[in-house]
Design a protein around this nucleic acid. Structure first.
Lengths: 333, 333
DNA sequence: CTTCTATGTGAAAGCGTTTTCAATGTTGCG
DNA sequence: CGCAACATTGAAAACGCTTTCACATAGAAG
């Protein structure tokens, strides 16, 4: 007892017109006599006809779906971007195929390929690192690819970000202004462009501007997890740090709670400033000071940019930089 | 200079075989002579042929993609489920079309329709309420629909959940055992089945078992947001509550922080227990006690169940109940 | 040397749309 | 009334694959 599907052909027959005409009314083509349109519409309604998007996709070579590659939906930073992406996508009648990559290069390439096989009209990539292989795939893709909240040292793909170097420099300067001389830099893997090419540069710049010499012992390379942050306390104090810039909110929460649990007072004895301004910063105590980023907007703008690209509209600027800010809460003086 | 796509036809021509044969090797059909297979594989590799999934979908009536309706990706509870769903989906070679519904009935129906139009092979629905209209659509759908971490009073759809009534009852009993007589029940809208048909029942059951009479003044119906929780403090103390069961972690964090900020000591003067055991419970101070749910697994099992349904395998039990627990942390005595 | 059964393979018919192109019907105007 | 110009419509060819069915070919069995 398989459910029967009604096709455009059925509608055409019932309405005594051709498939072409039905297709026209379904697609809002104006070249249809009002009377005919009405007649067709009635039949569509009566038969409860619903166009098959797959057939449509095959015939028109447009699927109105875009692929989204995300490191992990569970991460507040990325899920905020994803929300912005989806909202704008929906606004423009696109759907999103969402896949978690765990920032695993192999998986990313594989996922990218299945997305392309599925004929997505465009792709949004989030991830802290664009490998050479990935970059090659991007180029080969006939669907436009835009990076959201993600950087590629080659700057070859359209992208939307904030000015990470300036933002981190400002955050670190703020720490310096509070009298800190030994400031830790805590982030994820230094293999990731965002860390070694952006954040670390901003960090160094702030130090240099203040005449403080760079000490690699103050650089802590770890995972983006709460646990990793929490267990960092002994090392942090051993290195003589009195403040830390942290590259991820969950990690920062770990750092801060680890410190607090060890009896170190934040911010009096140790200041912490984080990077992503997710909800998390307001949930922990003390609330965390943070670089502020328009998370939702990064996603939204990326998607908007993608729609233009998919539409072959000429876009003035391929890489858009959104404004950042600094939000002083209670983890800094 | 449009990028040229190579089709199965091109491969067939180059390999001097028929399209049918190419199709067979691509699909791993064993009825191909090894020598032929090798030849075809070589051509595929040389031409860099990649099957068009849309055409495949049209011909085979299977798209290997499933639709996922989620209230909000940004919510830790649901994004955890989503992660479980995606991982299992990937394991079974499915992709996920993810759409946020904001629990808006109209949007849900609309989204469901576009998913069906896109010929998804199955659907996973998350949301705290299944309206009649939605239920009708589910029935009409030729793709199986399973509910994940979501209940429908009608119990008509396959679903995977925990025993909310028992879990809440146990949590509330715990609070009672600590000597609390006036326990607040804080949740989202009472229109949602999960609140009025499950959580509230569990709450009442625990009260009844302890011989405490139900007082509707202790029931707080609000939004699932941090802010909403935070601003609840005056009302909570005014009602004379000394403890609260809360239906969502973010909301609970708000309640707790609101209390703390107002000078109320948690847990000494007020105990809080929450429901979803997301990462959040560990980030706040004090850490929150919670009902524990196998979040990832709820998603994973739901997806697994869906694969069986899509495969027309007979499944022993349509509604699966996963075990819950109670995690005592520091927001309760 | 037949006859039979596997095993491999190809031709062609879909799958449900969109889109091109030609055909027909209509209207306006001199 | 005749004809150009335009508005409507339909026929049929894609789109790129899967799948059915029939046909070969090749051993196996008698």
């Amino acid at each position: 007892m398989e459910k029967q599907t009604v096709t455009i052909y059925d509608v055409a027959r019932e309405a005594a017109v051709s498939m072409a005409t039905v297709s026209r009314v379904v697609n809002g083509n104006p070249n249809v006599k009002p009377a005919t349109r009405k007649k067709v519409l009635e039949v569509i309604d009566r038969l409860d006809y619903r166009p098959n998007a797959v057939a449509r996709g095959l015939a028109s070579k447009k699927t109105t779906t875009v692929g989204v590659i995300i490191p992990d939906v569970t991460n507040a930073y990325f899920s905020s971007l994803a929300r912005g992406i989806d909202d704008i996508a929906m606004m423009y009648k696109y759907n999103i195929i969402l896949t978690n990559s765990d920032e695993n290069g192999g998986k990313e390439v594989q996922v990218l390929n299945t997305l392309m096989a599925k004929q997505v009209d465009g792709i949004i990539f989030m991830g802290n690192q664009v490998t050479d292989e990935l970059r090659e795939e991007f180029k080969r893709s006939k669907a436009p690819v835009v990076l959201a909240g993600s950087v590629d040292s080659e700057k070859t793909q359209p992208s939307v970000n904030i000015d990470y170097i300036a933002a981190v420099a400002e955050a670190v300067k703020n720490l310096i202004d509070h009298g800190n001389q030994r400031i830790a830099f805590v982030s994820g893997s230094m293999d990731q462009a965002i860390n070694h090419d952006y954040r670390l540069k901003g960090y160094k710049k702030a130090l240099k501007d203040a005449g403080i010499s760079y000490d690699s012992k103050l650089v802590f390379e770890t995972d983006y997890t709460y646990k990793a942050g929490q267990s960092l306390e002994p090392a942090l104090t051993a290195a003589g740090a009195t403040a830390a810039f942290v590259g991820d909110d969950e990690l920062a929460a770990g750092v801060m709670n680890g410190l607090t649990d060890a009896g170190v007072k934040v911010p009096d004895e140790f200041e912490v400033i984080t990077s992503n301004d997710t909800k998390l910063t307001e949930l922990v105590r003390p609330k965390m000071s943070s670089i502020t980023q328009p998370l939702y907007d990064i996603g939204a703008v990326a998607m908007r940019l993608l729609t233009k690209l998919m539409n072959n509209e000429t876009v003035e600027e391929n890489t858009v930089i959104l404004p950042y800010g600094l939000m002083k809460r209670s983890s800094t003086k």
